[in-house]
Each structure stands twice: as structure tokens, then as C-alpha cells.
Amino acid sequence: MLKVDNINVYYGKIHALKDVSLEVHPGEIVALIGANGAGKSTTLKTISGLLRSKTGSINFMDENISHTEAYKLVSKGMAHVPEGRHVFLQMTVLENLELGAYTSGKYVKEGIQNVFNRFPRLKHRKNQIAGTLSGGEQQMLAMGRALMSRPKLIMMDEPSMGLAPILVEQIFDIIRDLHESGTTILLVEQNAEMALRIADRAYVLESGRIKLSGTGAELAQSDEIKKAYLGG
């Protein structure tokens, strides 16, 4: 479904991603874990077209998207829930969701209903300005907004960041639910333990390079991972 081949991304003179390659197959949850500044978000931003790679290629649904503008990828079936949520704080919950369906206008009503079924808390706050929501609600809104485009692949950047443990559990339950309903997921997480628990496969990113890869269970057992990321 997604094949990233040998990309190199620079921020000015800083070499942020070094020969990164990864693959996501239909129906998988793939986790991308690593420390702060390892290049996880950069990888997602490059896939969704907000950043450009100097080398290599990115293929999505058998199409080379290395040079496709970010806004065109939404209608191809890719959704990206960015780090820090980036909901539209001055707009209402409903307006945020409507924008999520910007390219798939026909399903607005149906989509909103689906999102409200999945996140009942958003329904109660539908006419509230997103800036007044709590962090957890904003994360739900960001996820709901991404679902509005009925994506085939959804990329989530640190969905658990800054949330209370109980909310983290909830968010991961939702991710599992989404996966069970057939959505393919590429998940970036600092919370390696949680991520490895639900991931089919995972990649470990260190200083811009893929250090390790394997199934979630394999990596969770690996001594290297235990030492570096799981506090063992």
C-alpha cells in the first residue's frame, strides 16, 4: 500500500532523514518508534507531501507520489493526523469535521454520524469552538476529522502525547477499533510499549536512520529496545 524507498530529507543543512525505507501493507498497523528528534514526524510529513525528499521515491497505492502536492493526497486515500493535533481552534467541532470531508463532500452527514458514534464526547460539543476542548477531546477531533475523508491509510503522529494514562488507553482502543474496521494505520509513537503492543510490525528510527525493524512482538522482546525505549 505504502512503500517508502530510500528517502533523504534536509532542513537547510541538517540531514534529518538518512536513507529511510519502509513499507506498509494493506490492513496492517505499522508503528514507527524512536526518541525525540529521531525523525519520526519528518518521515510522516514527507510521506504526506508537506516536506520533500531529495532522493528515492514514495509510492502509495502503486502510484509514485514523491512529487504530489499534499492537498492532492487526501482524495487518493491518505490521511495524516499531525503531531500536536492541529485542529482549527477558532472553528467549531462541526466545522472541523466538515473540513475533514473537504474533498469528499457527499459523505459529510454520514461521516459526521460515524465520527459521533465513535467519539460520543464530540457530539455533545459539536457547536463548541475547538479551542475550548480538552487535550483528549482535541485528539479525538483530530482523529475524527481525518476519518471524514474515508482514508485507506491513516497516519497518526503521537496521538497519545500529553494525555492522561486513561485517555491514552482510550485512544489506543480507538486505533485498534479503526484497524479492525479495515483501515491501515501508520503510527508514530514515543510510547513504544503501547505502540509495540498493538503493532503488526514496527520500525525503530534513530538519528534519522532506520535502526531495527520486525514484528511488534519481536521488537518488544529485543534487548536493545527494552534498554533504550521500554525502561527495562
Binding site: A70, Y71, V74, P82, F88, L99, T103
Partner: peptide
């Protein structure tokens, strides 16, 4: 950026 990710 967020608007662009919505397909705008």
C-alpha cells in the same frame, strides 16, 4: 499545513 492535510 493542517488545511493542506484536509485537501485544501
Amino acid at each position: 499545513d493542517a488545511a493542506e492535510l484536509m485537501g485544501v
